[in-house]
Structure formats: structure tokens, C-alpha cells
Nucleic acid binder design. Structure first.
Length: 194
DNA sequence: GCATTGATCCTCT
DNA sequence: GAGGATCAATGCC
């Protein structure tokens, strides 16, 4: 397995990065417990022409600092004060582009993830949403700024190539508040499992 | 101070 | 598939 290099995250088009992240694997190594899975859904947020991101930055002023870091670092924040969402800073410093990991397919450390999520959770819901996957991987907002070249949290290329035909682009979720212009952008990417 | 609001999840029909 | 949970940060008195 090979970690994605910093250059991967520093390209200028977050939608391209979001597409390329599909089929890659994300891992976390905490307390000697390795957990991870295959990325199957992402969303892109751009500093340019994306009202939802500017509104987000306005709402969470602390976020703007973290997102100005150069690409290749983790950025996590809480929503509804109960769920943590996992983003990756992209582009160069001072560009606030980011990619949100929305869902993964759990593969490694299933028992650990099940325990972290609670035993009453159905196995098919272990990581089926942005708040769930962070909980399964044991991620908290304190991981913001973690370099994805580290041995704590990283993304690896498993050699799988995804044909364009298996990528479904659609509107992003839960952004109606940002207005139709931002909510209508087809910047949600899912990997069609076949 | 206090009201408003969310890049969501879970439970129960 | 709908509604409640639940609370800090923000913005406006």
C-alpha cells in the first residue's frame, strides 16, 4: 500500500480530487488499532463560486484558519455538536478548497469500529455517512491539522482504477440553506458498486 | 443575555 | 420517510 503524495491534494480542482479519491482507502491507527475502508462517496467544496463554503467559513470562523493550510492535511469539525465530519484540505495555502469524505466501505478493524459505534448498530450502517465514519475511525476535531503523510491518519492507493462510468455525480446533500446556486452544483461523487 | 441554526443520525411508523 | 435530539457558535438586541 502506498500513501497518496502531497501533490495529489495540491491540485487546483477540488472536484477532480474528489473523483480521484473514490476507490482509495483511508486508514487510522489509534492506540495500536488499525481501522480503515474504501472511499465510496465524496463531496467537493471550492473557494471559488461556492456559496456554501463561504457561509460555512462565516459561521465557523475557526475553520478558515484550518482550511488555509496547504493541501494534504485533515480538517475535522463538528456539526450539530454531536457529529464530526472528515474533510481533507486541498489546493495551495490560502485557498480554502476542501473535500468531504461522506462514506466509506469498512474493511479493516471491523470489530474495533463496531465497538466504537456501539454494539446495537447494524453492521451495514457502520460507516454509511459522514458522521458515522469519523466515529468508526475514532476521529475527533482534535485531529485537524494532521498531515496525511503521518502514521496516524492517511489515505492509500490500493492500485484500483475506477472507470469514469462507475462514478455518479449528483448535487451535494444538506446545503439547501446556501441557495440553489450552491446546492445545485453536481459536486457529490459516489462510487457505483458493481 | 437570548434566540436562531446547522456539510447529521437514529428511532419508530 | 419523517421528526426529534441537542448544543455551541454566531449575531442581534
Amino acid at each position: 500500500m502506498r500513501k497518496l503524495p502531497p501533490e495529489f491534494y495540491r491540485r487546483s480542482d477540488p472536484t477532480r480530487i474528489a473523483r480521484d479519491l473514490l476507490g482509495k482507502h483511508v486508514f487510522s491507527l489509534l492506540d495500536g488499532q488499525l481501522t480503515g475502508g474504501r472511499i465510496i462517496e465524496t463531496e467537493a467544496y471550492s473557494h471559488h463560486g461556492d456559496n456554501s463554503l463561504t457561509m460555512h467559513l462565516k459561521r465557523l470562523s475557526s475553520a478558515s484558519q484550518a482550511l488555509r493550510e496547504p493541501g494534504g492535511q485533515a480538517y475535522l469539525y463538528k456539526v450539530y455538536q454531536r457529529h464530526t465530519l472528515f474533510n481533507i484540505c486541498t489546493n495551495e495555502a490560502d485557498k480554502t478548497d476542501t473535500v468531504l469524505i461522506r462514506a466509506i466501505e469498512p474493511l479493516v478493524g471491523l470489530d474495533v469500529m463496531q465497538e466504537r459505534r456501539g454494539n446495537s448498530i447494524k453492521p451495514n450502517r457502520l460507516t454509511a455517512g459522514p458522521g458515522m465514519l469519523t466515529q468508526a475511525l475514532g476521529l475527533t476535531p482534535e485531529f485537524t491539522g494532521t498531515d496525511l503523510q503521518s502514521d496516524l491518519l492517511w489515505i492509500a492507493d490500493q492500485g484500483e482504477t475506477i472507470p469514469e462510468a462507475r462514478i455518479i455525480a449528483g448535487p451535494r446533500i444538506g446545503l439547501d440553506y446556501a441557495g440553489p446556486a450552491a446546492a445545485g452544483l453536481p459536486w457529490n461523487f459516489q462510487l457505483h458498486h458493481l
